[in-house]
Structures are given as structure tokens and as C-alpha cells.
Write a protein that binds this DNA or RNA. Structure first.
Lengths: 344, 344
DNA sequence: GGAAAAAGGTTAAGCGCTTAACTATAGATT
DNA sequence: AATCTATAGTTAAGCGCTTAACCTTTTTCC
């Protein structure tokens, strides 16, 4: 591999000149600049990034990290969309993207990750950090390394979706359709910070309609499709008169749909089902799922922008992105009183 | 950040000693080893990876790359599973994982990617490389950098799923169920190398049953759900007597299911539908999709193992992984002759 | 016309680590 | 006793790049 020195020799200048020309420093004649660039082209010189990193202290690598916990985050299309948003931004700005999925051991990210944080290899971190039991951004923050959090663990810079508004919109939609016997498929609040936000939104909407939220039947799943089906089964046997199920993520909503199909309860005629996330599958299943889109791609993109801004010395503002209810085929007005379940 | 020298000073030894102790070189007394490790712990030393990389020529970073083409690979759960497989192996062996998605400009991966390849930043590449129009592994291979290809672009080391066997199994299953009026939803062979393999498998199975493959109705989509629906519509209007649709990926199969739902054609009673890939959605839709599982996680895992073996001086063998037909609810024996579509 | 400022470039000192080459001592071998 | 070898460490030369400090020539300005 040719080095800076080879280029310098060929162009008949010093290595400093080559280095500065390549990084576009002013005060060089057109002639010199051309000579250098010519030499670079001729010998096919490409800078050695490790050397550049050691010397300049900047690696041009940022990391996207999320803890390896619960029902594999990897299985979550939501994460993929965020990743895509980050990638698109990095690609545009010439940054490289490293992926790390620290395992959590005794409440701490694993050793290898902690080393990575301090290794100087990473200019900045974007962390998907909403699992209350452990923070992956905390060690980064503690070492003063630039970081942006997507989620609710404390950080100066963050990107969040407005989960409270999302919860509100979902519940409001259901109430507007006339439903009052509403089951909620939630997740234990200890699993994800956003859950309490979404629940707060549901509650606010219910109260706006004079409905006591605490009287609504609720079951707790774990985000997975299977748990959604189980929760639906549980709610339906305890409360056969429900006309709507509000689920705090799409995969559980899809599980609920399965369970309803098994029980031959038609959606949306006999039961309205609402999801949350708007994963790609939501649009292509039958019936297509009414859900809350939280702009995952945009979350990733904004987080990357924010981080790169920080790296370039700016001081961006944290962002809370709006969400949007996407009404599809799984929600409908409450069935007419005459329409009983069996007869439907 | 503390450096090797700080550790050396504190432990009262030379930097060489510290370096060698940390990399577990023999010929050091227990006493020295302990002193060094003690000092490391006391001052919280973590090696600077850029320096290590520059000096040793090894960065401990491998890259997973795939071209940014057609119906966003990012949207493909298959890719995600591969990524997960790679990550799990990297994590175990202490490697870091970089993600790169080169854009293809005039038949070549973009400049930034080509620089990355030659930058010395990446110890080895795993490429998802099956798009005939451009190879992302070719420049890597050309520069003599260790690489493993998942797919069909030429490489000394590769991991492949047995697409031909997969095609065979899918078609064989349909034929065994008694179907003979079979529509094929394919993709233009110029979009992906695996397509011709799968088609060859279909053909072989058809011929084993004495069926002329070329007489079967076929439509070409582009892997997307929407295109699957369009292809199904086209095939059904041209050939209303079809009893089975074999689709060369799951998303198109799901599109076909949608279209059948719209036309009130019941699956599997009136129509058998087969997919390919076994993406997570395949298992949770109604009806659950019969499809070919190609072990995406394992492909990623084996590719990573292979690459790390190469980096450690071994010479692994290329692998073609077996595939497995997963029979679910979307396939059934050909309807009895009396059972017409309308009456079904 | 002379001083200051700008333009165009070079020298050389690192960045923090690895490793080849070397020194020195203790025990084993002949 | 002399030689060899294994053990236990040190010295110092890079790896390829950036950049502060410095030098020289040209331009600008009063």
C-alpha cells in the first residue's frame, strides 16, 4: 500500500504539503495542488485510516448501540428502520458505522463494550436506550464521549418519539369510534421506558371522555407476537364483552389478531384492534392494522444528524418527534347493539 | 486517557513488558505479570485501538457489506437475520462489526466504499453479494483483503444456501399435494443470482413428475409485497384455473395472499401458496405461510466463523447450507374436482 | 521605500502501540 | 569449567499520519 511519503516523493514535495493539500488547507498554489492530486491518482494512494486516527484523534467512526435484551431487538423491524436512518445520514457525511450490541451482565454492559467505549476508536455513540434495567449510554456519557440517546435514559442530547401523544391518539381514535369496553395489552413498565409514556397517553384520552382508565381490563405481554395472543386470550375469557383491544406494539397486536381469528371473532366488524409502531408487516397483513407510526427512520436520521453536529462543534437541541395515527382496516365503529358476537 | 507508558511507570517496568504481558506473551514471572495487571486496574488503562491498529496492522474490525439496491435490502428481515448471526459470532470472538452499504454508481461501488476497502481499517469483509449488476466483494478480493461472500459472486470463500434444493423442495411439495396447474411468481434473473438456482430446482422437480416446466404460467415481480400482489392478479386473470402459486420469496407470497383475499379465494382450500425465505412474518400471518427456510442466522454465523478462521491463518472450506421446507397452513392437497371456486 | 501581512512551503515532533533485536541471569548439559 | 538454553526483561525503531513551529518569498499598505 502506498503511503503519504510515496506521494510526496513522486510529487516532489514534503509529506506535510501532501497531507495539507488532501485536507484542503489554504495557502497552496494551484500547481502544487495539481501535482499532488496527480501523484495520488497515479500511484492509487488511499489514506491509512488507522494512522490518521492515531494522529488526529478522530476515527470517522460512529457506533450504533443497543443492549442485547428481551425478545431479541434484532428481530424488531423498528430497530432496522432506525439503523437505516442512521446509515443514510452517515453515508452522506462520509462517516462509518459500527454496530455493537452489548450483553448486560449484572446490570452492566459487558467488558468488551466498556473497552470499546474507552478505546478511542469511536468518535461518537448513538444509543437505543430505553430499557430501565441497564443503560448502554451511561458509560459513554460518563467518559465524556459525544453521544445521542434514542429513548429515555438521561442524556443531554436525545431523540424521542412522543409516546404520550401516541398513546393519546390511539385511545382517542378508539373512543371516537364509540368503544367503551376496551381491553389494553400492555407490557410491564420495567421493561421499557416508553410504556409508561404510552399508558399516560391512554389514560389522558380516557379521562377526556370521562372514562376511568383504571377500570379497563389490562394484560401484560413482553412485546412478542406469542404474548400478544396469550394476552388477547386472557382478556377475552375474562371480559367477553370487549369491543376493542389497544396493544402497545404491533407484534402483540398481530398476536391478538391471530387469537381473534382462532376464536372466529371478525376484525373489525366485531372487534377493533390497534397496534403501535407501524412496522412493515402492519400494512400487509389482513386486515391491515391501525397503528401509531413513530417515524423510526426519521428518529435514526435525526439522531445521526444531531451526533454529527456535536462532533462538528455545534450544540443541537434535543428533539421530540411527533407521531401519527395510521388508520387502516382493523378499526371500526363499535358494533350496533343488535349485532351479537355469535350472530355477527 | 492513561497510556501504556503510564502503566509501565506505575508498575516499574518498560512499556514493552506491559504490552507483552497484556498480549499474553510467555516468559514473564508471575510477579511482573501481577504488578502490570495491578497497575492497569489501578489507573483504569484501556488500550488505544487506533494505536494498536497502526502498529500491528490489525484493527479487530470486520465489515458486513451489501449493495444499496432494489427494494431496500434494509427492509429485508432476511438481511437482519444474517446480521444477527454475524454479530453473535463477532461478539463471542471479540471482534467489532462495521456496517457498510455502498451505493452503486455506474456499475461500481461508490468511492467512499472503495476507500474504506483500501484504508486498512477493516481486517476482513463479509459481503452479501448476489446482485449480478455489481459486486461489492470484487474490489475487496482484488486488493487481497480476506473476505467471505454470502451469495454467488465469485470468491474463494463463500457461504451459500442450497437454492436449487430449496426450489426443488417447494415444487416437489406442491406436486406431491396433487397440484398440476401451478403458477410461478418469480423475479427477473438479472436481479439476483439465486433466482436461476431456485428456478432450476423448480424445473427439476417438475420434470421428475413429467411436467413440462416451460408450460407453467409465470410472472416476474421485484421481491416486494406489492409486486407479489400484482403478479398474482396477472396470473389469476390469465389462468383462472390455477390451484397453486409458488413464489420465490415470502414478501411476494404475502402480496399474493392479499390479492387472493381481495378476490375471496380461500387459502389453502382453493389455492395453495408457497413462499421462500421463512421470514418471521411468514409464521404469524393468517394463514401461516408454507415456505423454505434458508437458515439466514446460520448463514451469517458460518460466514463470520469462516472469515475469522481465515484471519487466524486457517483455510476453511466453502459451505453450501441445506435448506428446509417448512410446511404451514397455506398449502393443502389440490381441491376435489367438485369443489369449484365459487362454490368453495 | 520599508514594514507588515499574506502566500507557499518545509522540518520535525509526536500520536500510543508492537516487536525485532539485544542484554543478562539462572539452570541444564557435556 | 565451559557451553548451551530457557527465562526475564529492556531498548529503540518504526507504523503512517497530522500539525505546531518555522522559514522564505511575494504582495499589500501607508
Amino acid at each position: 500500500m502506498p503511503t503519504l511519503e510515496d506521494v510526496a516523493r513522486r510529487a516532489g514535495v514534503s509529506t506535510a504539503t501532501v497531507s495539507k493539500v488532501l485536507s484542503n488547507t489554504p495557502y497552496f498554489s494551484e500547481r502544487t495542488r495539481a501535482k499532488v492530486l496527480q501523484a495520488v491518482k497515479e500511484i492509487g494512494y488511499v489514506p491509512n485510516l488507522a494512522a490518521r486516527a492515531l494522529s488526529s484523534g478522530k476515527t470517522q467512526i460512529i457506533a450504533f448501540v443497543f443492549p442485547y435484551v428481551y425478545d431479541a431487538l434484532f428481530a424488531d423491524p423498528f430497530v432496522l428502520l432506525i439503523l437505516e436512518g442512521i446509515e443514510s445520514e452517515c453515508h452522506q457525511r462520509g462517516y462509518n458505522l459500527l454496530l455493537s450490541t452489548p450483553r448486560i451482565v449484572s446490570g452492566q454492559p459487558d467488558e468488551h463494550y466498556l473497552q470499546l467505549v474507552q478505546s478511542g476508536y469511536i468518535d461518537g455513540f448513538i444509543a437505543l436506550d430505553s430499557v430501565p434495567s441497564a443503560s448502554v449510554v451511561e458509560p459513554v456519557f460518563a467518559h465524556g464521549i459525544p453521544s445521542v440517546t434514542i429513548g429515555y435514559h438521561p442524556n443531554t442530547f436525545f431523540v424521542r418519539a412522543d409516546d404520550c401523544a401516541g398513546g393519546f391518539q390511539a385511545m382517542d381514535h378508539v373512543l371516537k369510534l364509540g368503544h367503551r369496553r376496551i381491553g389494553v395489552i400492555s407490557v410491564n413498565e420495567s421493561l421499557h421506558f416508553s410504556i409508561s409514556q404510552r399508558l399516560a397517553g391512554l389514560r389522558a384520552a380516557a379521562e377526556a371522555y370521562g372514562l376511568d382508565f383504571d377500570t379497563l381490563p389490562m394484560a401484560e405481554g413482553d412485546f412478542s407476537t406469542a404474548s400478544g395472543a396469550a394476552c388477547a386470550a386472557e382478556l377475552l375469557s375474562r371480559h367477553p364483552d370487549l369491543t376493542a383491544l389497544v396493544c402497545l406494539n404491533d407484534r402483540m397486536a398481530i398476536g391478538a389478531l391471530q387469537q381473534l381469528h382462532v376464536r372466529a371473532i371478525r376484525v373489525p366488524d366485531q372487534m377493533t384492534v390497534i397496534g403501535y409502531d407501524d412496522i412493515p408487516t402492519a400494512a400487509i397483513i389482513v386486515p391491515p392494522l391501525t397503528t401509531v407510526n413513530q417515524q423510526a427512520f426519521r428518529q435514526g436520521q435525526e439522531a445521526a444528524r444531531m451526533l454529527l453536529d456535536i462532533l462538528n462543534g455545534r450544540s443541537p437541541q434535543p428533539i421530540t418527534l411527533p407521531v401519527e395515527l395510521v388508520v387502516r382496516g382493523s378499526s371500526a365503529p363499535v358494533p350496533a347493539p343488535g349485532l351479537t358476537r355469535k350472530g355477527g
